[in-house]
Amino acid sequence: MIELSRAVYDDIVYHAYGGGEAEICGVLAGTYGDDGEPSVVTDTYRAENVAETPQIRYLIDPEEQFELIETIEDDGLDVVGFYHSHPTGPTHPSETDAARATWPDHSYVICALDGYPFVGSWRWRGDDDEFEQETVSVRSER
């Protein structure tokens, strides 16, 4: 399970709309949930999509990803996972998404804009490109 603050959920959706026809991407930070505990996302760290075909793929430059991870850790947070959008597609990972996943047991949030925006999340289990759908909850600000 993954829990997003309302601000995080809204930021992902607005970022996705701002990307137009191109996929957007970024890193999710907060408290990493392990052993049945939910991951709690409190912050998003936007990244530039440097894919050759950003309309159907996303890619975070490795140097930028490293810098974002260092910033997240310096801020006292955990890397919870990653997010990107599917401007015209579903909320489940594509074959390419599965093939490029590299963080076992971390969340991959996808914002679909085909119709009403919907945010889904998947955990990559690290074997045979297997993703497991996880429940997304949005926490109201307190």
Rank of each mutant, 00 (worst) to 15 (best):
G33W: 00
A16P: 06
P104Y: 07
M1V: 08
I24Q: 11
A99S: 15
D129W: 00
H86P: 06
Q55A: 15
T31S: 13
E3G: 09
G33P: 06
D128F: 14
T31Q: 13
W122Y: 01
E73D: 08
D127P: 12
D129E: 00
E134F: 01
W103P: 04
I24N: 09
L28R: 01
D43G: 02
L28S: 01
L68F: 06
V13K: 15
P93T: 13
I69Y: 04
T88R: 12
F118A: 13
D78N: 05
S107H: 05
V13S: 13
S140M: 11
S85G: 12
A101H: 00
S137A: 04
Q55Y: 03
V109W: 00
Q133A: 07
P87G: 06
D127A: 08
E67L: 09
I60T: 01
D43Q: 14
E63F: 09
E73P: 02
D127M: 11
V79D: 06
P90R: 15
G36D: 12
D10L: 14
D43I: 03
P93Q: 08
A22V: 09
I12V: 15
G26Y: 09
L68W: 07
D74F: 06
A112N: 09
Y83V: 04
T102D: 14
A22E: 14
L4Q: 09
E48K: 14
